[in-house]
């Protein structure tokens, strides 16, 4: 097995709040291998975006460690991080907010080259043109400003900027969530091609289960900043082990009326990250919780090779929720 591009251990992040702290990320560990896409799914407040900001060190973690490309960057200074950012990139959800409105697309594409590549102006212009072509932007776009482009085109610009310096890892934080369905498909196809060509590793953050299933090799399900389950994408979607994952997947609406829904009811509301309950965070809403579930944090248990979930009931195989009745 090759060395991971990214190795995260016991990551913890707290945001200070008026009385106490928001426990956004609680003891999260994972690796991403070269050329791999790891999907990070969870509902709002699950800490998925915070993890994206932490591993790119746009935030400094409260605890734990982050190693990128063999180098510990947990406490790395801005000066140390700067050259490294050529290889560690992030694409955000909102391309309108991510691109400087006063720069032309051409300049926006040259900017990362200016920062990281030793090229003269002519080389940079040529490279920007090549990048635009690579992400299938029309050449005319280079002279335009962000407000003149559509959301899908702008997201292509963001991706082109991220890949400009041949990164090893790109974090994609909901890269297609603000786009229409057909435009979204085009962006996902582009990411797929880029990965096949260059072997970039990707951390794909999304709340959209269908998209994550399509693009990811492995998937981590987060609940309140803690990993509930992780497995190969096919395993996770075929046989979810954690009651939360089972609930989450059952609530998804497949865009096909021929697929029957079989929904697990969820009771109650998600606990506040300001006051997390002891033990398993899902215990209060879990239909099969035992008294022991509220006592201690459940350990990650193996369900099958490469498939782990943090649920006590996996130990004796009683972790599956009763099959719900299909809705009419």
């Amino acid at each position: 097995m090759t060395a991971p591009v990214l190795s995260v251990r016991n990551l913890v992040h707290r945001f200070p709040a008026t009385n106490g702290a928001v426990h956004a990320v609680n003891d999260v560990s994972f690796d991403i291998a070269p050329g791999e896409t790891l999907g990070l799914v969870g509902e709002s407040g699950s800490g998925k975006s915070t993890i994206g900001l932490l591993v790119t060190r746009l935030l400094s973690p409260t605890g734990g460690s982050i190693a990128f490309d063999g180098e510990d960057i947990t406490r790395a200074s801005a000066a140390t991080l700067r050259p490294l950012r050529a290889r560690l990139q992030i694409v955000f959800q909102d391309p309108w907010g991510a691109l400087n409105p006063r720069m032309t697309i051409g300049r926006l594409l040259e900017e990362p080259l200016l920062l990281h590549a030793r090229q003269n102006a002519a080389e940079r212009t040529a490279e920007a043109r090549r990048l635009a072509d690579r992400v299938r932007l029309p050449e005319a776009a280079l002279a335009r400003y962000p407000h003149e482009l559509s959301g899908g085109q702008l997201q292509r610009v963001s991706i082109a900027r991220a890949i400009a310096n041949r990164p090893k890892l790109v974090v994609l934080d909901e890269p297609t969530s603000s786009l229409d369905l057909s435009v979204r498909a085009g962006i996902l196809q582009l990411l797929d091609e880029l990965q096949r060509e260059t072997g970039i590793a990707m951390l794909f953050i999304s709340h959209d289960l269908e998209t994550v299933r399509l693009v990811s090799h492995r998937v981590i399900v987060l609940y309140l900043g803690r990993i509930a389950e992780q497995a190969a994408a096919a395993q996770l979607f075929a046989s979810p082990a954690h009651p939360y994952t089972q609930t989450l997947l059952s609530a998804h609406l497949p865009p096909d009326p021929a697929v029957p829904l079989a929904r697990h009811e969820v009771v109650g509301e998600i606990p506040s990250p300001l006051r997390l309950p002891p033990g398993c965070f899902f215990a209060g809403r879990c239909p099969i919780a035992l008294p022991a579930c509220t006592q201690a944090t459940p350990a990650m248990l193996a369900v099958e090779p490469g498939h782990h979930a943090a649920c006590l009931r996996i130990a004796d195989g009683s972790n599956l929720l009763a099959q719900p009745e299909g809705t009419p």
Binding site: S182, R184, A185, L188, L214, P254
Partner: peptide
């Protein structure tokens, strides 16, 4: 529209 849903792409 239907062909661009992730399930159909897969």
């Amino acid at each position: 529209l239907i062909a661009s849903t992730p399930g159909r792409i897969a």
